[in-house]
Amino acid sequence: MTLASFTTPSGFLLPSIHSAPPFFTQQPNPNTQSIVTENWTRLILTYARYRRLFFIKLEDAETKGGDWDEVLRNERINRQLFPSHLSHILSQMVERNQAVYEPQKQTRSVLLYWRLPEEWAEVLHEWVTTTGQLNSILTFYEIIEPPIESVLSGIPMTLLRKAISILGRTGRAQIISVADGEGVRFFAGTGK
């Protein structure tokens, strides 16, 4: 039995473990399951990063046709990840700060940290600096949906807020009330 990697239609390279039938079953042996969980976690995060997906939901494992089909299913060996197994994996990811339940107080949907909020903060500051927008006021909308697509395009509001508040702690950002809601002003600084 040879397990080979596989390139999906979206161009993502699935690791060879994805073609191992038992990879899709929750393992009764805790040591084995921790290997399985670790591999799923890595796969979910790299795929999310590749396709810029910020959320994964149990629904994605329940029904076909979502963004996650290529990963949560392997039609070539007729296997799929069941919602209960995905739920277990997500809980482990939340425990290790690789994701957070979003919205809070439920466990069916998570916001994935393929970049940690601290890393997003740096990415954000870098973007503001290189696009020459330091010291001017930006609305959240301008960051999430900039006229020219950026590394931050489509970032969820909650994640953006976290990143801004991290920059705020080192005096590199300040939230300001503007006419139609909130805006933010960024300042130079190393963050040290």
Partner: peptide
């Protein structure tokens, strides 16, 4: 490793040490 989605027997066991892993 356990496989609960086996077409033949419903439940199958896989021996990873006997598999070839490309990556």
């Amino acid at each position: 490793w356990l496989d609960e989605q086996d077409e033949g027997s419903g439940t199958a066991y896989w021996v990873p040490s006997a598999m070839q892993w490309d990556i």
